[in-house]
Simulated scan of single mutants.
Amino acid sequence: MTSKKPFTVAEHQSFDTLMMAACQVIGRHGYKGASVARIAEEAGISQGHCYKFFKSRDDILDHVIIWIMAQFENWSRKPSREGLGYLESEHHALEQFFSYQKKYPFFFRIMHEAEVETPTAWKSFADRRHAQYVDSLRSAIDSGEIRGYGPDQVDDLARFLSAVRRAIVFGAYEGTITDKIKVIANYDLFLRQALGFPI
């Protein structure tokens, strides 16, 4: 965003409305069809008002992946998740992902197209998520929950496991995975075997 002053409450609400409108438009028309005119109409504001927060259409679209993932993380961060072990946390995260997608059908399409359509924003998002995953794995290794991996292997392990999660998520989006309960159970079995948990 171009503004450097702190937002008022009304501006925060207006910004969130604009971002949600961009998500809805991308869900229907894809990134390529997400014009400022369509986003403004969806948000119920003038096109000029969009430029109060963003300098261009590309600037709006660059913010979508970061915004929607922040919304997802805030939505999925429940008190019951605290104190979960690594496997339970992974299981919970995948269930929450599918549940969020059911609530907001545009979610998968944004995830699917953002890497190609907004590569800089995607890289920023992907780097942050990778760092979080590395921290999660390192903590589980340090506590003895995950065995057989050393500190110099954590980065690669995070990439391997992220690829599996990505395959599940995009398989669900593309329709090749339809039984989400079964795939979560199989993912759990895979993690147990790959990370040395009891089966």
Rank of each mutant, 00 (worst) to 15 (best):
K123I: 06
S80R: 11
I45F: 07
K78I: 07
T8Q: 10
D135Y: 01
Y86P: 04
L161H: 14
A21L: 05
R192V: 02
D188E: 12
N186K: 11
G27T: 10
S162F: 04
K180C: 03
L157S: 09
R138I: 00
F97N: 05
D142C: 00
A140L: 01
T176I: 15
R28E: 15
I141Q: 03
A163M: 07
R109V: 01
D58S: 14
S162C: 05
L94V: 09
V9I: 10
Y149P: 07
D58C: 02
F53Y: 15
V9F: 13
I65E: 07
Y100D: 04
Y51Q: 06
L189A: 13
S139Q: 09
Y51K: 03
N74P: 00
A70I: 04
S3N: 13
V183R: 09
M1T: 13
A43W: 04
S162Y: 02
K32T: 12
A121W: 01
D16W: 06
P105T: 12
H49K: 14
I45L: 13
D62Q: 10
Q153R: 14
E41G: 06
M69V: 12
G44L: 10
I181K: 15
D142E: 10
E42H: 01
Q47K: 15
D152S: 14
D142K: 11
A40K: 05
I181W: 04
L189E: 13
R109D: 04
E95L: 06
W75T: 03
